[in-house]
Simulated assay, not measured.
Amino acid sequence: MRERRVTVVGYEGAELLDIACVTSTLEMANGLGAAPPYRVRLAGPGGRPITCGSGLTLHVQETLERVAGPLDTLIVSGGIGHEDAAGDRLLVAHVRRLARESRRVASVCTGAGILAAAGLLDGRRATTHWRWARDMAVRHPEVAVDPAPIFIRDGNVATSAGVTSALDLTLAFIEEDHGTELARRVSRYLVTYLQRPGNQAQMSMFTAAPPPEDALVKRVVDRIAGDLAGDLATAALAAGAGVSERHLTRLFLKHLGRTPGRFVRRARTEAAAHLLASTSLPVAVVAARCGFGTAETLRQAFVDQYGIPPSRYRSTQATHPPRAV
């Protein structure tokens, strides 16, 4: 193989970062010795320049309709124009055609909606930007949409979450194609994580949605966030709020989409993740501070949420010598 042909599909209203995270990372790999190298080309409908969501104009290198396989990798970008692109039958047909001629198919952010429109995600587990996950699940019930991970691999099809998660997915491709050492060197030059776990949550539960509209739920959430090591059993939370456990659970499901118990477990796990990445505290101490009875209980919660144990999370997330607190 002389080169790995990679076609990135753009369109009017595509997100510049969705494109650049892929193209710049692969070109960086080339500069650092990828062999065979990647031959990266941006393709667009009609070969016309595309105006990105940021207002900047990109000149494509290939006309989408004229691209022919075999390709190593086909990557569809996302962006504010993704709905129009997914509704463009000609564009979708060419994505479907090229997917059949590609070893590997991927999407960035809302580009997953275009893959779904092409039928490429039918029966598969997939992700997209958290903001658009519910909409995609409604439009494409044949796709198992999971809004949590930053990227998902299902067979030869990969979908990534919002915007810069494309960088994580591209580094994973480089590691798959050329090994860990080259991926590590690329990540150093990019000043980013080598391996942010693919099933790491896209964003914190405390920032993923606006504060609960219900005043009682907000008070309970504030109590949870302010005393993670305390008694946060549903019975204790309900008693503190002056309502029954059943009523509190109903309110949490309505406003937060999860039971009080699940909310508490995730809040504690996220707090533990922050301490693991930013301090040198022993895992047992982190567990105690965040309300887990034992280090093993913390480990189980971590594996459930992130797919890796706390020690592995710390090794991939700590970007500088951790501090003791």
Rank of each mutant, 00 (worst) to 15 (best):
G226W: 02
G87K: 11
V286Y: 01
P45I: 05
L256V: 08
M203S: 15
L251H: 03
L56F: 09
A99M: 06
R184S: 10
L256F: 11
R289S: 08
L58P: 02
T279D: 03
L16Q: 15
E176S: 15
T51V: 05
T57C: 10
V40R: 05
G87L: 08
S160E: 04
Y193W: 13
E296H: 04
L256Q: 15
P141V: 09
E181P: 03
P45C: 05
L251T: 03
S311K: 12
V6N: 01
F206M: 15
T180W: 06
L71S: 10
T51A: 13
L32Y: 11
L26M: 14
A14E: 11
A86C: 05
R125T: 15
G47Q: 07
R323K: 12
K254E: 15
L216E: 10
R185D: 14
D222G: 04
R265G: 00
E101F: 11
E270T: 07
P310Y: 14
M1C: 02
G69P: 02
W132L: 12
L251W: 05
G33S: 12
T294N: 07
R125G: 08
P141H: 08
L71M: 09
T110I: 14
N199Y: 05
A233T: 09
R139T: 02
P37G: 14
E101W: 05
